[in-house]
Design a binder for these strands. Structure first.
Lengths: 370, 370
DNA sequence: ATGAAAGCGCTAACAG
DNA sequence: CTGTTAGCGCTTTCAT
C-alpha cells in the first residue's frame, strides 16, 4: 500500500499517478489531493489570477500564456474545486427536488425529466424523499440546513395543508408542485385536476357508462389531488344528471397498486353495480384491473377503466390504459426554468402556472359505446 | 397576486424580514442573507469559536453561555452554511449516484433505496442520468468537476467495457455497479447473473418447458447483463441436453417495454415454435406478454414467461410475473455503506461483492408442469 | 472555558 | 494583459 513511486515519492491507496514535486500536494488520508489553482499557477509560472482567467474564458489573454496554462492544467489533471467556487459565488450549481417516493412511477418519471432539464442548464439535482415521514417531515425539509447546499428547491408535498402556507415563506427560491396549498408566497405549478377529472368522467359517460366507480378517494379531505379529482367527477355526474352513489366510492389513502386492488375488491364485494372505474391515478388503475380480472370481470367489455397520470407503463399494460396526461413533462421543464429565474434574481409576484391536460385514449376505455 | 396577507403584510417573492441592525446583513439581490457565525457571536456577545463549540456540541461550555448562544441562534434563525463547512472539512455530505435513466423502474427503485440508505447515514444523493449519451458520456462523468461536489460516486455504467477499466482509476471513492467491467481498481457490487439466469432457465425446464425463447439478447456482446444472462441460459440448456436454437433468440439493445413487444413479435412472426419466454428483464417481459396476448397466445397456458429484476410492478401485472429477484435492495444498502467506508478512509484492496438471488414464483410461470 | 487567527480554493476588485 | 490581495463562512490549532 505505501510504496515508492517512479520519482521516489509516496504512493498510497491503489496505484496513483506520479507526484511531480512541483505539482500536487497530498492529504494525510489516502487520496492524493487534487491540484489547486495555485499548483497550476506555479507550474505554468504565472499568477493564480491568470489561471483563473484562462479557466473562465476571460477574453484578453496572450495566446502563449494561455497555452502554457492549459498545458499545466492538463499535466496536473486540474479540475476546479466547486465547493470553493460555491462558497465564493454563493451558488452551488445544484437544485434540490423533494418528492414523496422515487419508487412511485409518477415521481420517478418527473424526477427523470427534472434532472434532464436541469442538466441542460448546467445544474445537478439532489433528490430527497419525504416518504412516510408525514407533515412534520415535510416542514423540516423546508428549513433543513441542507437547503444551503442547493440554490433552490422544487417541492412536491403530500401531507402539508393550506394551514401550513406560512411555512412556505422561506428565504431561498422555492417552486411548489401539486395541489396541497394554494395562494402561497411562492411560484406554484399544478395541473388542472378538477377540469381533467371532469373531462375524464365525461369521456366515460359519453362512451355509454353510467355507473362509474372511483378508486383511491380520500374521504373527508378537502384539498389535494384526491379531493379535486373527486370534485371533477361529481361535477361531471351532476352535469349529466347522474346521481352520486357513495357505494361506488373506494377509499384509499395510499396510491400503490396494492391499494388499488384492495379498494376495487371492496367495491366488488360490497355488491355494487358498476360499468366503469375511474382510478385517481394510473398505479391504482393497474391494481384495480388486477382485482377486476380476479373477479372475472373483463376490461373493457364489462368494466371500462380510466386512469390519471399517463405514466410510461400505461401504454404497455394489458389492456393498455386510457388515462389523463396531466402535463407532467411540461411541469418538469417549467419547474426548472421557474426556479432558475428566481435563482437569477427575478423579482416578481408569486405565479400560479397551470399545465394543460389531455385524455389519452387506449384499450381500457374505448371512446365508443359498447 | 401581490396581495395583503392575513396580518396585512405583503406577500411577495423577495420580500424580506425585518433587518435588526445587529443581526443579519443583506445581499444586493433580493434575498436576505443568512446569518453567519459572526452575527450570532456578536448578538450573543461571545466569540465565534464559542458559537462553533455550541453548534458542534463541544462538551465544556458554561451553561449560561450556551443558553445565550442558543437564544441568539434562534433569534437570527441561524443555520450553518454547509458550503463553507464543506470547503473547510473537505466533505460535502453528499454522494452521487449515476444511472442510465430514472424512468426505468429498476433504476428508480434502486435510487429510492440508495437515497433512503444514504439518508440514514446523514448523506444526500445527487443523481445523474447518463441516458443515451453513450460511452463517452459515461467516461466524462467520471472526470467531471462535479465529482468534487460529492464525497463519492456510485456508478452503474451501461456502455463502458472492459477496455475502459483504466478509466476507473479515479482519485475519489468510487463504487461500481453492474457487469460491464470486472477486475477494476474499485469496489464492485454485482449480481450473480450467470447463476441466476441458469436457475431461471432450469426452473422453466423443470416446469416442463423445452422450447424457451429469449427476449432482449445483445448479439455478439461478450460482457454486460445480456451476455451473462444468455450464458446462464445456454448452460442450463446444455445441462439438460436441450439444443440451442438461434431462431428462439430475440435481440434488443434497449430494454424498454416497446422493445420487448417488438422482439417477441419478431420471434412469433418468424414462425418459431416455443412454449416459454425468458425475458432478460421484467420490463421486456411486460412488453413480451403484451405481444403474446396480441398474437392470441395465453400466458402461462400456451407460453410461460420469466422475467429478471423483480421490480415492484411484477407483483401486480396481469398475469403477475415470475421473475428473478437479483438482490437489488441489498445492493443499494451495500453500495452506500461501501462508499462510506472508502470516504472514511478504509484502505483495503478492491472488493467484489455479490448479491444473492432468488426465483420469485408467480402466475406467468407456475412451478408445476401443465 | 473562551478568544485570536490561520486558511480551505476560489473569484473579483484593484493595481500595475 | 497580468499580479496582489481580500474575503466567502467555517473549523481548528494555539493561546489564554
Amino acid at each position: 500500500m505505501v510504496g515508492e513511486g517512479p520519482s521516489g515519492s509516496y504512493n498510497v491507496v491503489g496505484s496513483e499517478h506520479a507526484d511531480r514535486g512541483v505539482g500536487r500536494h497530498r492529504s494525510d488520508r489516502g487520496w492524493a489531493m487534487a491540484a489547486t489553482l495555485h499548483d497550476v499557477a506555479r507550474l505554468a509560472g504565472v499568477s493564480i489570477k491568470t489561471v483563473s482567467n484562462v479557466i473562465n474564458d476571460y477574453p484578453h489573454i496572450r495566446p502563449t500564456t494561455k497555452e502554457r496554462v492549459e498545458a499545466a492544467i492538463a499535466e496536473l489533471g486540474y479540475t476546479p474545486n466547486l465547493t470553493a467556487r460555491s462558497l465564493r459565488s454563493g451558488r452551488t450549481g445544484s437544485i434540490a427536488l423533494a418528492v414523496p417516493d422515487l419508487a412511485l412511477a409518477y415521481f420517478a418519471e418527473l424526477a427523470a425529466s427534472v434532472i434532464a432539464a436541469a442538466e441542460a442548464s448546467g445544474l445537478v439535482v439532489t433528490i430527497e424523499q419525504t416518504g412516510s415521514g408525514g407533515r412534520q417531515r415535510e416542514l423540516d425539509l423546508l428549513t433543513s440546513p441542507r437547503r444551503k447546499m442547493s440554490d433552490g428547491l422544487i417541492f412536491s408535498p403530500l401531507e402539508m395543508s393550506q394551514d401550513d402556507v406560512a411555512h412556505l415563506n422561506v428565504d431561498y427560491p422555492l417552486v411548489l408542485l401539486g395541489e396541497r396549498i394554494f395562494e402561497g408566497p411562492t411560484d406554484h405549478l399544478t395541473m388542472r385536476n378538477v377540469e381533467a377529472a371532469r373531462a375524464a368522467t365525461e369521456y366515460l359517460i359519453r362512451s355509454g357508462r353510467r355507473r362509474i366507480a372511483i378508486v383511491g378517494a380520500h374521504e373527508g379531505e378537502l384539498i389535494g389531488s384526491a379531493a379535486l379529482r373527486l370534485q371533477g367527477y361529481r361535477e361531471a355526474l351532476e352535469a349529466h344528471g347522474i346521481p352520486f352513489d357513495g357505494r361506488l366510492i373506494g377509499p384509499s389513502i395510499e396510491w400503490h397498486r396494492a391499494n388499488g386492488a384492495r379498494s376495487m375488491r371492496e367495491i366488488i364485494e360490497r355488491g355494487a353495480d358498476f360499468d366503469a372505474v375511474f382510478a385517481l391515478n394510473d398505479t391504482l388503475a393497474f391494481g384495480a384491473m388486477r382485482a377486476l380480472q380476479e373477479a372475472g370481470l373483463r376490461v373493457p367489455d364489462d368494466v371500462a377503466v380510466m386512469g390519471f397520470d399517463d405514466i410510461d407503463e400505461a401504454q404497455y399494460s394489458i389492456p393498455s390504459l386510457t388515462t389523463v396526461d396531466p402535463g407532467r413533462a411540461w411541469i418538469a421543464r417549467t419547474a426548472v426554468s421557474t426556479v432558475i429565474e428566481r435563482i437569477e434574481g427575478l423579482d416578481a409576484p408569486p405565479r400560479l402556472l397551470l399545465a394543460d391536460f389531455e385524455i389519452v385514449q387506449r384499450e381500457s376505455a374505448p371512446a365508443v359505446a359498447r
